[in-house]
Amino acid sequence: MKNEVVKEKIGFGVLLLATLLVVIPVLLIIWLILSKGWSALSWEFLFTMPRDGMRAGGIFPAIVGTFYLVIASIAFSLPIGVLAAIYLSEYAADNLLTRIINLAIINLAGVSSVVFGLFGLSLFVIFLKFGVSIISGALTLGIMTLPVIITTTREALRAVPKSYREVSLSLGASRWQTIRHSVLPFALPGILTGAILSIGRVAGETAPILFTVAAFYLPKLPHSLSDQVMALPYHLYIVTTQIPYIPENFRFGTALVLVGLVLIMNITAVIIRSKYRKRK
């Protein structure tokens, strides 16, 4: 009897330790970035162009660039991913072709991001002649996030009880009406979770944008989808490794802005999601 209690305590302790091991690095990262980057934050840093070879001024174009890339790539990958997931989970028969497609999607998720960058360079930049541009970068990032969006959407669709579909069908609704009115509304929170995960990934990746859109130094804002932009992760890489004698808080300030931007976009998505949850 006593033995069992001791065992349980030990088990509990191990679980707690594992949890702490997860939480502590996260807290350390946040503390590090905040403590070293906070002092860089100012109106000038956030909203002006870089000056003096990026050793002074702000990072405004990189913020705008990353924001555009996130919006453009999600605008591409969310609808396509959701439609593909609907087809795969609601319509496609369980045959060899479907299984191959599923396998491809899983493998796509495992491809390293620099390969996506290379792919985007050869397909969008060179072959389709989009050039080094927002459109090339956003499409590359979008393709990179498709597996996540498809997978989370399918999970969300699968979580909608079969009985809702049957009730809807039994009331004379067509298959598409059933999906539209009795499946998608209840899968939406899960679908948005996929979008949220993608936002973080898109905003933070350097490799896929390296050859497709990112500018080293471009102190102006983009006018169209075919312009190049600066982007926060690439900018962070540059100021950390390529430019000597830069104030340290510039580096951490850039990191802080990147993390903050992702956080803000995620919170927005979470708010939208909880609105839908409540509507249920």
């Binding site: 009880p161 009985s163 809702y164 049957e166 009730v167 809807s168 069908l169 039994s170 009331l171 004379g172 609704a173 067509s174 009406q177 009115h181 009795s182 209840f186 249920k280």
Partner: peptide, 29 residues
Amino acid sequence: RKRVGMIFALPIPLPRSIHDNITYGPRLA
């Protein structure tokens, strides 16, 4: 299925209002 209606073993109201549940079929039609 509009002519041959079905009641299931467990009551399965759709997570909507009472009114919306009843008008679900007719509205989609």
